[in-house]
Design a protein around this nucleic acid. Structure first.
Lengths: 120, 120
DNA sequence: ATCTATGCATAGTATAACTAGGTATGATTT
DNA sequence: AAATCATACCTAGTTATACTATGCATAGAT
């Protein structure tokens, strides 16, 4: 199932940082990985990911280096920095706050029902 | 705690529909209610909410009517329509899919640890 | 009488992901 | 060997959506 792409806004950075927190990866690899991990929910476009990687690097959140076996294709790997790691921690908390708040509003009706049933 | 406003993108409509699914409300009231319900996480600006209400009405998702005690202030109430209700159902499913996918990516590390510990 | 909170509305701005295009390499197919 | 396709990186311009800033009006409080 695809989701409204607008839902993705604001959550791409945390997803990128979270993946690089596990292991260094290169851009194209991240696109394929996150699609697989999310069962096709997240299908990052190159025009989305690469600019994000560049801006994260400019902000000191991640670092890049070219790497590849001799004679084979070189890929640009990114790894998370200390700064990126603490940013990730903040963003995890932020996501928790946000998603809980949405759930609270979406489920208020059910919650009220629960109260009514308890009172019976 | 405030969250990145960009996180909100794509989720405002579902929040609005969800509130109107409980009872008819007027714009200003919704702003105050959702701020209270979400413990200050969602602080809709009027410039955000009113255009959304207008567009939802234009799309047949909600209907409006002026109402107020005689001699007292008139307020523009909105109520959800059948069409709005089925749209809400879809969007609930979409939110579930999206937030689960984010959680899956964010918590993959912990999940892997669990696997490793089981293998020991 | 003035001030503040309430209440509706909209034009213009900022932000972030996408579209659409470009370049290049390695592997597979014909 | 040539053609094709998946891989791999990049960016300028577009689009969608929430926000800023502002205007107008009413009701209650000081």
């Amino acid at each position: 199932m695809k989701v409204n792409k607008e839902l993705l806004k604001g959550s791409t950075v945390i997803l990128v940082l979270s993946m690089l927190d596990r292991e260094p990866m290169y851009g194209y690899q991240m696109i394929k990985e996150i699609e697989k991990e999310s069962s096709g929910v997240f299908m990052f476009k190159e025009g989305t990911l690469y600019p994000i990687l560049h801006s994260l690097e400019a902000g000191g959140m991640i670092e890049s280096y070219w790497w590849g076996n001799e004679g084979s294709r070189q890929r640009k790997y990114y790894k998370i920095t200390e700064k990126g790691n603490s940013c990730l921690k903040e963003k995890r908390q932020e996501w928790e706050t946000f998603s809980s708040a949405v759930d609270k509003v979406l489920n208020k009706e059910a919650f009220v029902w629960g109260q009514l049933m308890t009172q019976e």
